[in-house]
Simulated scan of single mutants.
Amino acid sequence: MKVQGWLFLLCGLFFAGVDVAYWFWTKAATGTGEPVGTTAMAISVGFAFMIGYYLMFTARRIGDQPEDNKQADISDGAGEIGFFSPHSWWPLFVCLAAAFAFAGFVIGFWMFLIGLFLIILAMIGFVFQYYRGHFSH
Rank of each mutant, 00 (worst) to 15 (best):
G12K: 02
L13V: 11
F14R: 00
A16W: 15
D19C: 14
D19R: 08
D19Y: 02
A21R: 02
Y22S: 07
W23D: 00
W23L: 07
F24T: 01
F24L: 11
T26N: 04
K27Y: 15
A28F: 09
A29K: 14
G31T: 03
G33S: 13
P35I: 02
V36D: 00
G37M: 00
T38M: 12
T39F: 13
M41S: 01
V45W: 01
G46T: 01
A48M: 14
A48Y: 05
M50R: 10
M50D: 13
Y53Q: 06
Y53S: 13
L55R: 13
M56T: 06
F57K: 07
F57Q: 05
T58R: 14
R60Q: 05
G63D: 01
D68Q: 08
N69A: 02
K70W: 02
K70A: 13
D73C: 08
D73L: 07
S75G: 09
D76W: 04
G79P: 04
P86D: 09
P86T: 12
P91D: 06
L92K: 01
F93E: 07
F93H: 03
C95I: 11
C95L: 15
L96A: 09
A97F: 15
F100A: 04
A101E: 04
A101D: 05
F105K: 15
F105C: 11
F105L: 15
V106M: 03
V106P: 08
G108V: 03
G108F: 13
F109I: 14
M111W: 11
M111G: 00
L113G: 09
I114V: 15
I114L: 12
I114M: 10
I114T: 09
L116C: 09
L116G: 13
L116I: 13
I119Y: 00
I119N: 03
L121T: 12
L121H: 02
G125T: 11
F126N: 06
V127L: 12
V127C: 02
F128I: 07
F128H: 11
F128G: 08
